[in-house]
């Protein structure tokens, strides 16, 4: 899980490794994911999102690709 300055640099990174580019995430989307995962991590009630909740979180921030499905088996 890395940061990149541009889509072109993501593509170059993937090409150098012989892998296909995955869905890109903006910094605003990444912040929403970070909050969903970690905002309560220091509290007694904290817990990791389950599969259904993960799907809802990804969909809410606009990440609907099956790549983000926590139970998908269609990606290598």
């Amino acid at each position: 899980m890395l940061f990149f300055r541009s889509e072109e640099l993501v593509n170059a990174w993937c090409q150098a490794r012989g892998i296909r580019p995955r869905p890109l995430v903006t910094m605003a989307q990444l912040w929403e994911l970070a909050v969903a995962w970690y905002a309560t991590r220091l509290s007694p009630e904290a817990r990791r999102p389950g599969p259904d909740e993960m799907r809802r979180i990804f969909a809410r921030v606009g990440l609907n690709d099956p790549f983000w499905d926590p139970q998908a088996d269609t990606f290598g």
Binding site: M1, L2, F3, F4, R5, S6, E7, V10, W13, C14, I19, P21, R22, L24, V25, T26, M27, A28, Q29, L30, W31, M54, F58, F67, W68, D69, P70, Q71, A72, D73, F75
Partner: peptide, 15 residues
């Protein structure tokens, strides 16, 4: 975060 054009890329599927 402050507005930024940077991107996040994850190679490994969530599953």
């Amino acid at each position: 975060p402050e507005p930024s054009p940077w991107l996040f890329h994850c190679q490994v599927p969530a599953a």
